[in-house]
Design a protein around this nucleic acid. Structure first.
Lengths: 198, 198
DNA sequence: CGAAAATTTGACATGACTCAACTGGAGTGG
DNA sequence: CCACTCCAGTTGAGTCATGTCAAATTTTCG
């Protein structure tokens, strides 16, 4: 089996149990696709037509406010699903952009194919439910932490929790993800370094 | 059929199609329960053992930080599901409290019963997937809005979107939900009133 | 009516933003 | 190999949004 597809199948098998037949039946519904750095998987205003699983690479999902400022909603790396779920489920124009920060390889499943898959293997409903539940729980904690912690604490916690992301994306994006300005993040880092020395 | 159960069945039927038989089969798995104002449906440290659907009343889900400050994660009203999903799915101690703000009637389904239900009517996996997807999409927007908007804008948008909640919970809880202090919210309201007059 | 809870007020402190300038790489092309 | 540009990151001064604390006031409700 193609190793990218295998990666997804393994991801599924870690949460539900697929028979050999089911695994084989799923494969033809999957669509492998490559993006270059900077390319968009979903653009604001377009309708998101696929569920997207990241095989390798790195993406960000962001929102552009009225003043033209970017607000990063989420990063996505290897083994994560990423989408504008609202646009996908209601087939309305996306509010978020999803852009590749590196050359990125993904597996996509169109809505139609997805419905076929759910008929083929209804267990997949459970798989996606579990995935999204996890994402929801993380979002809830993020909301709370945004309120309960200072920017400095959030930054330290971010680089502790996601070192692989923190090391591989520009700082101004981390600032945006945390909801602070790049200048302020810069001064926080300065503080942190001098804290460490003294 | 008991009218509370009917309320849930209708809620389900608005998203998926249940046969008459399935509807009848679901009922015995449901558990009706009443709470008084102030009572806890889930307490921090306990394990959440049920999915909980609110038939009537009003609840809040909140987190207590190290300094003892409350941070409201969500409100729940009629026709909403509310839970500490993380605790429920992993059967680990809850980080959030879920407390009734009024006398509240709920329908609960234990994990075991839920598994039975999923076997009985696998479509329910889809129903819960759709519910949680919606909640996730809302959370994402909330994160963005917390970053893109000022406290005043968030407050106005909150009372516009959820007037029924805004009118029925104390202001200090709205402040907590928005991530600001009750004093600051008070001064925002003063501004808003004087804006309106001039 | 009286006590407790919720809200408001005001003085003051500070975390975080703005803006503009500067530094320092990483290409790129001559 | 240098000059040039572009982009990310840093700095610092000034400002604004929001927080803190303590007290006064209003509302709720037994």
């Amino acid at each position: 089996m193609n190793s990218s597809f295998l990666k997804l199948i393994n991801h599924i098998n870690r949460r539900i149990i697929l028979t050999e037949d089911e695994q084989q039946a799923i494969i033809p519904h999957l669509n492998l696709r490559s993006y270059l750095k900077g390319q968009y998987i979903v653009q604001e205003g377009d309708v998101s037509r696929n569920e997207t699983f990241i095989v390798s690479g790195k993406v960000r999902s962001f929102y552009l406010d009225d003043k033209g400022n970017e607000h990063i909603v989420a990063f996505g790396i290897e083994d994560w699903w990423i989408n504008d779920i609202c646009s996908y489920t209601t087939q309305t124009p996306a509010e978020f952009n999803i852009q590749c920060l590196e050359p990125t390889e993904v597996i996509q499943i169109s809505r139609d194919k997805m419905e076929e898959l759910f008929i083929l293997a209804p267990k997949l409903e459970r798989y996606f439910r579990l995935i999204i539940q996890k994402a929801y729980a993380n979002m809830s904690k993020r909301i709370v932490n945004n309120h309960a912690q200072s920017a400095k604490e959030r930054y330290l916690s971010f680089i502790g929790t996601y070192p692989d992301i923190a090391n591989r994306v520009p700082q101004y994006m981390i600032a945006s993800y945390l909801g602070i300005t790049k200048e302020f993040l810069s001064s926080l880092r300065k503080q942190i370094h001098s804290d460490a020395k003294s």
